[in-house]
Nucleic acid binder design. Structure first.
Length: 477
DNA sequence: GCATGATCATGC
DNA sequence: GCATGATCATGC
């Protein structure tokens, strides 16, 4: 015999009102048990999401294809925050349902497993603290969330990108870097978690739909500011319907209300029918092929020090029509923008550097959650300049790029080797450029006296991951 | 103060 | 000429 729920599970407002009571509290506040209760101690180690469903909302956690509050069309999601300075940012990506490669390709976006379940979310952001049991985590933000139309446009493109790979029999080659906001993240304890795919015999790594951490930061900011745009119920309804779109998404930008970045609205207005965000970006840059840095600066009336290392970022932002510091979609999609300069003869002098290797951290990392993997599986936006006869760099081309599956396997071997060396205390025999392993390890510091502590307490020169110039050359040609 | 994106310098 | 080591300007 179940006691009646303290809310109406078919009524969105009732659910939200009840959920809001969690704000600034922990789940334990609502449980009548002591901290040392054996059962609670055990539970405290479990998934907070499951406990919220079971103990707070009175649901048995399940793995149905339906949303948690199916009658109200709301999916419940809990997600951790971490403190960075004064503000809170997302600790990790938000993971949705596992992608059933055998089924997902049979539908269109609006009837997909992802959209049916996750069109409207009830988000519970809590403050993660590894010192505490999860029952004691404080909920910081509780809010309903619908995707703004500008973002939805990109999410639909993302979903199509993922499904296209399934249809091409390349589910095993899917990478988080393929997409901007909606990712297909690995799901499973190890690389051995694989599934069948419909158009190839190659087992594909199990993956789930997910929102990238950087996109969550945007959601968090919107919610925290109290400004977040909730799309009108009627507007959203057509997206939920199973019939074909009654009107073109791309024309709806004029209906947007406050709470949206102006830049995003402007970009959406600029979409031509059927164009993806990336095609739009490439088209915008296409207008400036052959221009030199100074041409571009003059044209946009930019006063940037030619020595400034961020000058390319400033220029690229202006080409995208963004006055501010960043391109919103690049931030939300966690796109890694890199500039390279080819010599007059087309050769590429420099390799591309990444973060310094954190000697104390890498030894505890696993490949799939390592910095190296996270970075190399990003979507890259590469801006290519080439020097002319006078050695003046001129914009040659731009491209979006994701590291191919087979190259990622090489990078993994490189990383394992690097990790093993550091574990062994050997800091002098890393993979070199001449080893031709796509990546190499090389110094990156203020000077040779700039050292970093290792796990064993010694100090070593700071070194970083680098992508080989020859490899980059092959990417862009 | 220091990581980052990027480029310079040297020695084989 | 290229691989490797070293370092710079900037922003957070």
């Amino acid at each position: 015999m179940q006691s009646p729920l303290p809310y109406d599970k078919g009524d969105k407002n009732s659910i939200l009102t009840y959920a809001k009571l969690l704000e600034n509290r922990s789940l334990r506040t609502f449980l009548s048990c002591s901290k040392d209760d054996a059962m609670v101690v055990k539970l405290g180690k479990g998934s907070l999401g499951n406990m919220v469903e079971e103990f707070y909302f009175g649901y048995r956690p399940n793995s149905d294809a339906q949303a948690v509050f199916a009658d109200a069309g709301i999916e419940l999601k809990t997600s951790p925050l971490k403190r960075v300075g004064k503000e809170f940012v997302s600790k990790e990506r938000l993971v949705f349902n596992i992608i059933n490669y055998m089924e997902e390709h049979k539908t269109m976006f609006r009837t997909s497993s992802f959209w049916k379940k996750n069109a409207e979310l009830l988000l519970l952001f809590y403050i993660h603290d590894k010192e505490q049991q999860s029952l004691d985590y404080e909920f910081k933000y509780v809010s309903l969330w619908r995707f703004p139309e500008t973002d939805l446009k990109i999410i639909i493109d993302d979903w199509n990108t993922i499904v296209r790979k399934i249809k091409e029999g390349r589910a095993h080659e899917i990478s988080e870097g393929d997409t901007l906001y909606l990712g297909a993240c690995t799901k499973g304890a190890t690389k051995a978690s694989v599934r069948q795919q419909p158009f190839s015999d190659i087992p594909a790594m199990q993956r789930a739909f997910s929102l990238k951490s950087k996109y969550l930061n945007y959601i968090i900011k919107q919610i925290a500011s109290g400004m977040h745009h909730v799309i009108d119920e009627g507007e959203y309804a057509y997206l939920l319907s199973e019939s074909p779109l009654p009107r073109d998404l791309y024309e709806s930008a004029n209906n947007l209300e406050l709470g949206h970045a102006v830049a995003a609205v402007e970009s959406l207005r600029a979409y031509k029918n059927g164009q993806t965000f990336e095609e739009l970006v490439c088209e915008r840059f296409g207008n400036y092929i052959g221009w030199s840095e100074s041409d571009l600066m003059k044209h946009f009336d930019l006063k940037v020090n030619l020595e400034a290392k961020n000058r390319y970022n400033v220029i690229c932002n202006r080409i995208m029509g963004v006055e501010g510091k960043y391109i919103e979609e690049f931030v939300k999609g966690d796109i890694e923008m890199k500039t390279i300069i080819l010599e007059y003869n087309g050769s590429l002098r420099e390799s591309m550097s990444f973060q310094q290797i954190k000697y104390k951290e890498i030894i505890y990392e696993e490949w799939l959650s390592s910095y190296c993997y996270e970075t190399l599986t990003k979507r890259f936006f590469i801006v290519v300049f080439q020097r002319d006869e006078q050695r003046v760099p001129r914009l040659l081309k731009v491209l979006f790029w994701t590291m191919p599956h087979e190259d990622l396997a090489v990078a993994e071997r490189f990383w394992e080797n690097t990790k093993a060396n550091i574990l062994n205390g050997d800091f002098n025999n890393f993979v070199k450029l001449s080893d031709n392993m796509i990546c190499h390890v090389r110094p990156k510091a203020r000077n040779a006296q700039d050292l970093m502590e290792t796990a064993s307490g010694t100090f070593e020169k700071k070194k970083a991951y680098w992508l080989n110039n020859a490899y980059i050359k092959s990417i862009i040609s």
